[in-house]
C-alpha cells in the first residue's frame, strides 16, 4: 500500500515509477533528493541566486511534467542534470544576446548618446557577483569556476562535485567521451593556473 512505502530509502527508479503512477509524495521526494545538486549546478553556471532558483524550478517542472517519458533503464539523475544543464546554457545564450543588444540604444547617433544609453550587464553582474561571493561563497575556487567556459563548468561540476564518471558526463551532456576528457583536462589546467597565487 502507498502509505507503507519508505520513499527516502527507495532507489530513484522506483520513486520515479511511483511518480509515474501519480503519487504526489514521490514527486516531492524527487525534488527533495535533487533540489540542492540541481540548484548548485545551475547556480555555478549562471552565478546569480535568484536566476539559479528560477532555472532550477524550471528544470524540475519540465522533468516532473514529463515524468511519464522517463525510462528506468537510464539514471534519473542523469536525465535531470541534462535538463538542468540545457536550461542553464539556454539562459546564458539569451543573456549573452541581451548584453550585445543593450550596447547602446539603436537610435543613438552620437558618442554621447551611445554612452548615455548603454549599460553593460556583464560588468554590473560582475560587481554584484563579487559582493555575493564575498558574502556567500568567499572562496577563490568558486571565483575560478566562474571564469571557466560554461561547458567546462558543467563538466567539472559533474565530475568533482557530483562524482560522475566520464561516461556518465558524456551521456548527460550529449558530448563525445573524448570531448568530455578534453574539457575536464582544460578546466583543471585553468583552475590550477587561477589558484596558483594561493600557493605562492
Amino acid at each position: 500500500m502507498p502509505a507503507a512505502l519508505d520513499l527516502p530509502n527507495l532507489p530513484d527508479a522506483d520513486v520515479a515509477r511511483l511518480a509515474q503512477q501519480g503519487r504526489e509524495p514521490a514527486f516531492r521526494e524527487l525534488v527533495r533528493r535533487y533540489e540542492r545538486p540541481v540548484f548548485s549546478l545551475v547556480f555555478r553556471m549562471v552565478r546569480d541566486t535568484a536566476t539559479a532558483e528560477d532555472l532550477a524550478q524550471d528544470t524540475f517542472i519540465k522533468v516532473l511534467n514529463h515524468i511519464d517519458k522517463y525510462r528506468p533503464e537510464f539514471k534519473f539523475s542523469s536525465w535531470l542534470f541534462k535538463i538542468a544543464n540545457n536550461v542553464a546554457i539556454d539562459h546564458l545564450r539569451r543573456r549573452h544576446l541581451d548584453t550585445i543588444s543593450m550596447d547602446g540604444a539603436p537610435n543613438a547617433a552620437t558618442a554621447a548618446d551611445i554612452e548615455a544609453t548603454s549599460f553593460d550587464i556583464a560588468d554590473r553582474s560582475e560587481s554584484a557577483l563579487e559582493v555575493m561571493e564575498a558574502k556567500e561563497l568567499g572562496s577563490s575556487i568558486e571565483k575560478a569556476i566562474g571564469a571557466l567556459r560554461p561547458e567546462y563548468r558543467a563538466c567539472i561540476m559533474l565530475r568533482h562535485v557530483e562524482g560522475r564518471s566520464y561516461e556518465e558526463i558524456a551521456a548527460t551532456l550529449d558530448l563525445p567521451l573524448g570531448t568530455v576528457k578534453t574539457y575536464i583536462h582544460r578546466a583543471r589546467h585553468q583552475l590550477r593556473e587561477a589558484l596558483e597565487h594561493l600557493r605562492e
Partner: peptide, 25 residues
C-alpha cells in the same frame, strides 16, 4: 585543485522550493 573541487558544498534554494515546483506540476 581536485580536492578543493570535491569539497565544494551543495547550495540550498530558498525554503518552500518543492512547494513552488509542485504548484506548477
Amino acid at each position: 585543485v581536485a580536492d578543493a573541487l570535491e569539497r565544494l558544498p551543495h547550495f540550498a534554494p530558498r525554503t518552500g522550493f518543492a512547494d513552488r515546483v509542485l504548484s506548477h506540476v
